[in-house]
Nucleic acid binder design. Sequence first.
DNA 1: TTTATACAAGACAACAAACATCTTATTTAT
DNA 2: ATAAATAAGATGTTTGTTGTCTTGTATAAA
Lengths: 165, 165
Amino acid sequence: MRLTRAAEYAIRCIIYLAKQGRGVLANKNDIAERAEIPPHFLAKIGQDLAKAGLIEIRQGAKGGFVLVKEPRDITLLEVVETMIGEIYLNDCVARPSGCNALSACGVHQVWIRARNQLRDTLRQATFDKLIKKKICIPVSDVKNLTGLNNTRGRDNSPEPVKNLP
Amino acid sequence: MRLTRAAEYAIRCIIYLAKQGRGVLANKNDIAERAEIPPHFLAKIGQDLAKAGLIEIRQGAKGGFVLVKEPRDITLLEVVETMIGEIYLNDCVARPSGCNALSACGVHQVWIRARNQLRDTLRQATFDKLIKKKICIPVSDVKNLTGLNNTRGRDNSPEPVKNLP
DNA sequence: TTTATACAAGACAACAAACATCTTATTTAT
DNA sequence: ATAAATAAGATGTTTGTTGTCTTGTATAAA
Ligand code: SF4
Ligand code: SF4
């Protein structure tokens, strides 16, 4: 499992749409600008999200993206797996045939367990909950968006992870 | 986070050594053969494991790898993170400075939670427990190792994941 | 002391994936 | 008709994975 940029962008896109509410159309370039997503890349991501039934794409003048489902019916897991495929952590979880240990292998069992936990956690995070909290994607109020992830120059600074409680 | 081949190989290597017990020397090529690890690649992996203090490498004739710590003091997390670096799932968990949402972002909090759960699960898996169960890396008995992951020709067959209970 | 054995260290290369961008349609409101 | 907006997919750049290979060093045993 690896969260790609595309997946993070997709989440931001859905957040943006969820804030507006289901059925409300949003211009693609607006989304791209506010959520700091490369516009062309968003086009591709949007197609994936549409194929998965999360959004609907309106073509033509005054077109854009529309959220199809209610935010409370969309889970973080859904969005993430739409973009990066099903999470399985270890290869042998996805294809047990590779190793004949199957359920007998202790390590395998740990991966299964870790995978299920992770997916459950992401499944519990629905977008109605997510948009209630403050979020770094402003939808209409802030014009001067300061803090977005514009780590373009991909710095690999060590910067230790804080272990929040 | 992505479990690489190198990480899976490292786990198998430690499993092999753990089965023999701490302080018992094992020939590198034997490990490579039994655990189905490309020999030269194992050399590289071994160096990482040695740097992390998990094993000791004996050079020269009759050299090889020796487990330094007791199996019960080695966790799956330790081995995995030695090989792939600290697990953080999402970039912004590792570098909160990228996004000024910090603890305010609902999505961020989910990633933090998921990350902690995952790491805890892997930390609880110590190698004394792991080698008690049957495992697909035989150490001394089986000569005809049948079921190892020799998916060399990297098949991308769909083969759906079973949802074990 | 010489030799064969075994690992160290790091360069290098093939391949795949991520991360986009660009071009050429097609669709739709006006 | 025209302009606005997305679709579809070809293409390119960069990074990461998964090794292999070469040269050198340490050690045991003859
Ligand atoms: S040894 Fe266990 S964890 Fe590793 S590939 Fe085989 S079944 Fe999976
Ligand atoms: S929007 Fe939230 S989850 Fe996404 S990068 Fe910013 S802090 Fe992280």
